[in-house]
C-alpha cells in the first residue's frame, strides 16, 4: 500500500487527502517527513564521512603517491559526469516544480530526464572503471592479475621513488578508496534511479499534483544529496594531482 520511502498520504473517495492515522493534520505529516528525511541525510553524511575521513588521513600520510595515482584518472570523464549530475539535479528540481504548478505531464518529462541523466552518469562511470581494469589499477585480488602501478614518465617515477619508496603500494590505497567511494556513490545512484522509476509509475497514475507531492520532494532531497557527494568526490579524486602531473 505504501510505495514511497517515507510517509504516504491516502487519497480517499472524496478526493481530499487525509493524514495517516498517527497524525492530526497533513501539515504535521509533511513537516514530520521532511525532518525525518533530513535526519536520514545526516546519517548519510556520516556514512560517506567515514570514507572521506579515511581519504583525508591517507592523503595526509602519502601525498605524493596519491597525487601520482590521481593523475591517471580521466579528468574529462569526471568533469562531464559532474555536469551530468548537476543537470540531473536541475531536472529533479523542475520535476518537483511541475508538481507544484500542477503540470502533470511536466512531472513525467522531468522525472524521465533525471533518470536518463542518472543512467548516463553510471554509463560513463562504467567506461572509467573499464579503463582502470585494463590498466590493472584494481587493488587486491578482485582481478586475476595483481595490482600494477608505475609512472610512465621515468623521471617522475624516479622522483616518486625517492620521496616514497613504497609509492606503488600507497597508490593502491588510493585506488582502493577510489573504487569504494565511487562504488558506494554509484550504489546510491542506482537506488535513487529505482525510486525515481517507482515515482514515475505513480505520477503516470496521477497520484501527484499541487496538493500532494511529498514523495517527490523527499526523493529530490536524496537525489541532490548524492549530487553533493559527487561535488566533493570530483576535486578530491580527479584533480588533486592536476598541477604536478
Amino acid at each position: 500500500m505504501n510505495s514511497t520511502p517515507l510517509v504516504d498520504g491516502h487519497a480517499h473517495g472524496d478526493g481530499h487527502r487525509h493524514p495517516a492515522h498517527q497524525f492530526e493534520t497533513m501539515e504535521q505529516q509533511k513537516e514530520t517527513s521532511t525532518l525525518g528525511m533530513w535526519l536520514f541525510l545526516v546519517t548519510e553524511i556520516m556514512f560517506f564521512g567515514g570514507l572521506f575521513t579515511a581519504y583525508v588521513i591517507y592523503r595526509h600520510m602519502y601525498p605524493d603517491a596519491f597525487a601520482a595515482a590521481s593523475s591517471t584518472l580521466d579528468v574529462k570523464w569526471g568533469g562531464i559526469n559532474t555536469a551530468v549530475l548537476i543537470c540531473s539535479s536541475l531536472t529533479m528540481a523542475l520535476a518537483i516544480r511541475s508538481a507544484q504548478v500542477n503540470w502533470r505531464k511536466g512531472i513525467l518529462i522531468f522525472l524521465s530526464l533525471t533518470m536518463l541523466l542518472g543512467l548516463t552518469f553510471l554509463g560513463i562511470k562504467a567506461i572509467e572503471y573499464r579503463a582502470k581494469f585494463v590498466e590493472r589499477h584494481v587493488p587486491g585480488d578482485v582481478l586475476n592479475e595483481p595490482f600494477h602501478f608505475e609512472l610512465e614518465n621515468h623521471h617522475e617515477a624516479a622522483v616518486a621513488q625517492a620521496q616514497d619508496p613504497l609509492y606503488p603500494r600507497h597508490a593502491e590505497i588510493f585506488f582502493a578508496l577510489y573504487f569504494i567511494m565511487t562504488g558506494v556513490h554509484a550504489t546510491h545512484m542506482i537506488i535513487g534511479i529505482l525510486i525515481l522509476a517507482v515515482l514515475w509509475h505513480f505520477s503516470r497514475k496521477g497520484k501527484f499534483d499541487s496538493e500532494y507531492y511529498n514523495p517527490l520532494e523527499m526523493t529530490g532531497l536524496y537525489w541532490h544529496f548524492v549530487d553533493i557527494v559527487w561535488i566533493f568526490l570530483f576535486p578530491l579524486l580527479y584533480l588533486l594531482g592536476a598541477h604536478t602531473h
Binding site: 535526519l39 545526516v42 556520516m46 567515514g50 572521506f52 575521513t53
Partner: peptide, 16 residues
C-alpha cells in the same frame, strides 16, 4: 531543518 543539516556537516568536520 537547517539546524539538522548544519549539525550533520559540523559533526563531519569534527570527526575529520
Amino acid at each position: 531543518t537547517v539546524l539538522t543539516a548544519a549539525a550533520g556537516f559540523f559533526w563531519l568536520f569534527l570527526m575529520i
